[in-house]
Nucleic acid binder design. Structure first.
Lengths: 229, 229
DNA sequence: ATTAACTGTGTCTGTCGGACACAATAAGGT
DNA sequence: ACCTTATTGTGTCCGACAGACACAGTTAAT
């Protein structure tokens, strides 16, 4: 699986020329997922789009799990470069870039849940994030934990705001209108703080993302400046 | 769906006595998920354990999506009480409680991905979290955003450390040994910062959780103290 | 020319969620 | 007491899915 992700497989010497490539298959799967959601990505559907038989795909990929891993790493792409920024600016830009990526391919929020092998693009993202914190006084574990906090927050917000072709949305949208508001009003006494908090008019676009980023980066700055004394 | 979650359905007057209850079905599903992972929860499997026919379940639940929603809210349970704590202590305890919940039922990490109706227990968790921030000077949206950051972080760490019966783990464990370390060493020049960061010996138990909580709470404290001036 | 490796295809199985019709059951209205 | 009517659990059926396996055609090494 790791070999697949990293393209580590020597081409066979004999036999017919392969009619497809692994990335070609993954790109077809990405197109489907972008257009119709991750649930629409089945072996049959991908094969039909190429077009080829379903079983032919298994010559390139051991199973669907692996295909999803490959298409996920491919869709993530390489992290954009932002030279000449402070660690804080760099991490902020990194987070926004990641958020944009999740918005470009909302199904990544579903396909990258749970432990999975790290592909080259994900490694590049990790590297770029950690890079911003080298020389900050944090040790390696702290650097990794920091970008983990950031990526986790980006995921959380993206999951709330993303609109996927397959349906499913965050709290503040459909869910609220779908009877939840009524029920909450009926049982307002059980959740007084929540009801009160929901009365506040929600802020502007991406408020949740920026709010969390500011808090996390503030917290990091506090630690870093303490370390640099 | 919302009515299901909140138990809002009047019992029918006529017809045979129901042999099961919705919560009974959900509890059976929870048992299966706890023991064998979320993937093992199929309508057939739940029915076999009760024991009853698969189709009988559809008299109590419209579909699998709804069953998962009900069992998720049920497994989450009510948030523990921690009276007499400062907002910071309360939010810390709240996060740890949530983390424990995810560890008790690791499949919650998978079943609660994506937008879904909020059930009574999830509402109670939200309420308890927001409650800690009432009177802090933050407005309702900021309070909600704050606990969203915290819950997102808890999710992230739980997802990394959780061991699920269905397999799948985080970055720092299996994944790393499964050839990733070797590949990363081979391509060390492509990811210099990442390789350097990974060289640091990893810290103690729950380091990632506490590190992120400290940063986030520090960031919140900064904002709150600024607001209270 | 022969062999051996590899490709894409066709066929098959088991599992899944769910639709639908049916007989058994229990209450309400008369 | 009777009949009507809503509701239960069951049995049968379907389409979609992931994947196993055998097979024929294709290409390079020998």
């Amino acid at each position: 699986m790791t070999e697949l992700l990293w393209g580590r497989q020597q081409p066979p010497s004999r036999g017919p020329k392969p009619a497809m490539t692994l990335t070609g298959i993954a790109e077809a799967a990405i197109r489907i997922a972008d257009a119709e959601g991750l649930d629409a990505v089945s072996m049959q559907r991908v094969a039909d789009d190429l077009p080829v038989t379903k079983m032919a795909l298994y010559r390139y990929v051991p199973g669907k799990t692996e295909l999803v891993a490959v298409m996920s790493d491919l869709a993530m792409g390489e992290p954009p470069e932002h030279p000449g920024l402070s660690w804080r600016e760099a991490l902020h830009a990194w987070s926004i870039d990641l958020f944009d990526g999740f918005n470009r391919h909302p199904w990544l929020l579903l396909s990258t849940v749970g432990g999975r092998p790290v592909g080259p693009n994900e490694a590049a993202w990790l590297d770029r994030g950690v890079q911003a914190l080298t020389g900050s006084g944090l040790n390696g574990t702290e650097q990794l934990d920091s970008i983990l906090v950031l990526s986790g927050h980006v995921r959380t917000i993206a999951l709330q705001t993303a609109t996927m072709p397959g349906g499913r949305q965050g709290l503040t949208e459909e869910t609220f209108t779908a009877g939840f508001a009524g029920i909450l009003a009926a049982e307002a006494d059980r959740f007084p703080s929540l009801v009160a908090a929901l009365r506040t008019p929600s802020g502007q676009e991406n408020q949740g993302l920026e709010f969390g980023l500011d808090r996390i980066l503030d917290g990091l700055e506090l630690l870093i400046s303490a370390r640099q004394d």
